[in-house]
Structure formats: structure tokens, C-alpha cells
Nucleic acid binder design. Structure first.
Length: 223
DNA sequence: TTGTGTTTTATTGCCTCC
DNA sequence: GGAGGCAATAAAACACAA
């Protein structure tokens, strides 16, 4: 199911598919390459060595890079022209993954090696993923801050209502004490009641007020 | 100019799918 | 088994402050 928080990526045919999920001070000290690997894209949590459900990767043994073979055609970094970059960007907007045929067409049009086009798309997808991860992280952080603010607001309400409850209880005790000390009301409808009419009225008013406040505050929460 | 950080292009190794 | 994808990484290219 697609939610508003889910991000989409352009794919063949212009359709979008959801891509699962991105401490500022810490991030400031990390290079972009280090930041890239901070979050696990699935759990949005910090990356761990062993991801559950995934085969544990073996330690890689890297060979030294091939920097120019006999003909000098090895590791030679060729910066793309602005035109090439813009055209590739336009292609990526409509389709983030290329069919072999399409890749070859683009390569021919831009006078690039098909491999360069493939590499460019691969790197572009990686950048796109990072960007989305950052966006999602920012959204989650904002949501978290809102929840914290609501929590603080509710705690303040609980505190205030608790105070009023204590006041009401002490008022109740004070009135009970007055009744017990001999103040009674003539024509009481409840013979044997230890509360005066004044006391009953005060209690009813206080209770009604507390209930009003309670429902009002809950009404705000529901809205 | 130079040191340093960031971005871009390319490679490598592993994995999945057909 | 080969093609293609991705993560991790290397290194050139670039930006920019000191």
C-alpha cells in the first residue's frame, strides 16, 4: 500500500514504485560518502554488520585498480559535458532503469560508451536514494518533534488537573468536617445525610466543572 | 597557492534473476 | 553461467577558505 510518506522513483514507462526508506552534529563531521552509509534503507536504523534476513557478506578483497592498460584505455576518468549530463538527467526523470536497447541508443546519441551510461544511471540511482533517505529522515524528525510537543502539552494538562483534584478533595474534606461538627440543614431531603445543601451544591458544581474541563480537553485532542 | 572537503565518474565484488 | 543491479570504495575533478 502506498502512503503519503513513501517516496517514488521513476521507472520504465513512467510508473513509480515505492522505495522503502533517512544526529546532525555527528553528520557535520562525516564526509558525504560516510553519511551515505549511515542508515539502513529498509529499517531506517543504523547499519549493522549483519542484517537480518540477508546473507552475511564476506570481507572483500579488493584488487588494485586497473589504471590504464597497454593502450591506456583503462581507468581514465572522463568528465561528462554539461549537455551530456543534462540529457542523462532528463532520461533519468522518465526512467530510472534502462533497458539494454535504450542504454545503447542514449550512448550513441550522447557519444558515450554504453558502460558509461549504465554507470551514470547506477550512480544517479544511488544519489537519488540518498536524497530520499535524507528527506524521509527529516520528515520523521519533524513528526517526532510534534509528538514530543503534544506529549509535553498533555503532561501539563495532567499536572493541572491533578492539582485541581487535590484541591477538590481537600474541599470535600473541609465540607465533611463542617457537617460533622454539627451544622445541619433543616428540611433535608435526605435524612441522615452528613452534607449540608450548601456542601452538596459546591460538590456538584466542582464536579461539573472538572468534567467540563475534561471533555473540552479531550474534544481538542480528537479534533 | 595549497590544503581540505565534496561531488562525480569508475571499479570491484557479491547477489539475484532468468 | 551470464547479465545487470547494488553497496562499497577509489580516485579524479571541482569548490573554496585561509
Amino acid at each position: 500500500m502506498m502512503t503519503s510518506n513513501m517516496v517514488t522513483m521513476p521507472v520504465n514507462g513512467g510508473h513509480n514504485f515505492p522505495v522503502q526508506g533517512g544526529d546532525d552534529q555527528l553528520m557535520m563531521f562525516l564526509s558525504s560518502q560516510q553519511q551515505k552509509c549511515l542508515f539502513d534503507p529498509v529499517t531506517l536504523g543504523p547499519k549493522t554488520e549483519d542484517q537480518p534476513g540477508k546473507a552475511v557478506k564476506k570481507q572483500r578483497k579488493r584488487k588494485p585498480k586497473n589504471r590504464g592498460g597497454e593502450n591506456g584505455a583503462g581507468y581514465g576518468k572522463r568528465k561528462l559535458t554539461d549537455y551530456q549530463a543534462v540529457q542523462l538527467e532528463l532520461c533519468f526523470e522518465s526512467e530510472a532503469k534502462l533497458e539494454t536497447e535504450r542504454k545503447e541508443t542514449i550512448a550513441a546519441e550522447l557519444e558515450l560508451e554504453p558502460r558509461q551510461v549504465a554507470v551514470w544511471f547506477q550512480n544517479r540511482r544511488a544519489r537519488w536514494k540518498c536524497k530520499k533517505l535524507e528527506d524521509e529522515f527529516a520528515n520523521l524528525r519533524t513528526s517526532h518533534q510534534c509528538v514530543l510537543a503534544q506529549k509535553a502539552q498533555l503532561e501539563a494538562q495532567v499536572s493541572e488537573l491533578s492539582g485541581r483534584l487535590v484541591e477538590a478533595e481537600s474541599e470535600l474534606q473541609r465540607l465533611s468536617a463542617r457537617c460533622e461538627s454539627g451544622i445541619s440543614v433543616e428540611n433535608s431531603s435526605t435524612p441522615g445525610s452528613s452534607l449540608s445543601m450548601e456542601g452538596v451544591q459546591l460538590l456538584e458544581n466542582g464536579y461539573a466543572q472538572v468534567m467540563d474541563d475534561y471533555w473540552m480537553s479531550n474534544l481538542y485532542e480528537m479534533m
